[in-house]
Simulated assay, not measured.
Amino acid sequence: MHGPAMSGWLLVALCGVTSAYCLLRMRSGPSEQRPVARGEALMGAGMAVMAVPAAVYDPPDWGWAVYAAVFGGAALRTLWWMRGSVRPWRSHTGSHHLHHLIGSVAMVYMALAMAPGVSGGGHAGHGAAGGMPLLTGVLLAYYAVYVLRVGVHLIPVPVVATASGGTLTWGALPELALACRLSMALGMLTMLLTL
C-alpha cells in the first residue's frame, strides 16, 4: 500500500474505530449524550465507507445517491432537533447539533461530488471528484478551526467519581469523546482536501 491507498486505509481505520467507539459511548454513556454519540457513529461509519480505496471497492454509479439520501436525512433530523433554537451555538447540545448539521451537509456535498458526470465523477478521496471551490474552502476553514478548538480542549481530565462512589465507565470519559470528535474532524479535513 503506497500513496493514496495507504492514506485511504488509514482514514478507513481511523473513522471505523471512531465509529465503533461512538457506538459504545451511545450504549454506556450518559443518556443526554446518546443522541450526539449516535450522530457521530453514523458520521464515522459513512466516512469509513467513503474512504475505502477504489482499487478495493468501487461503489456503483448510484452509490452517491445513497450517501446523499442518508446524510441529507441526518441533516433534516438535526434541523428538526434545532427547531425553535434561535442561537444553537450558545448551548453545549445546540453547538453539537450545529456541528452535526455542518458535517451532514459536507457529506452530502462530497456524495454529490462522487456523482458520475461531476468533474469526472468517481470515488471520493481519490482526486477524481471535483467540487465548487468556494464551498470546499468554507468547509475546510470550518474544520481547520474546529480541529484547533477541540485540540486546545483536549487536555488531561482527571477521572471523576460518580454519585454512587464509582468511577465513570470508559465509554463516558470526556477526553475520549473529545478525541473522537478530533479524529473525525481530521478525517473530514483529509477527505475535503482530496476534492
Rank of each mutant, 00 (worst) to 15 (best):
G3M: 09
W9N: 15
C15E: 05
S19L: 02
A20W: 06
Y21E: 01
L24T: 07
S28H: 05
S31R: 15
E32N: 13
Q33K: 11
R38K: 15
A41N: 01
L42T: 00
A45S: 10
M47H: 02
A48F: 02
V49P: 04
A54E: 06
A55V: 12
P59A: 08
P60E: 13
W62D: 15
W62R: 14
G63I: 02
F71H: 00
M82Q: 12
R83S: 06
G84P: 01
R87S: 11
S95Y: 13
H96A: 04
H100W: 01
I102G: 02
V108G: 03
Y109C: 05
L112F: 13
A113F: 03
S119D: 08
G120M: 10
H123D: 05
A129K: 10
G131P: 04
L134E: 12
L135I: 10
T136S: 09
L139T: 07
A141F: 14
Y146G: 05
V147F: 10
I155Q: 11
V160N: 09
A163N: 12
A163W: 12
S164N: 14
A172W: 01
P174A: 08
L178I: 05
A185P: 03
G187C: 00
G187L: 00
M188G: 02
T190S: 11
T190K: 12
L195P: 00
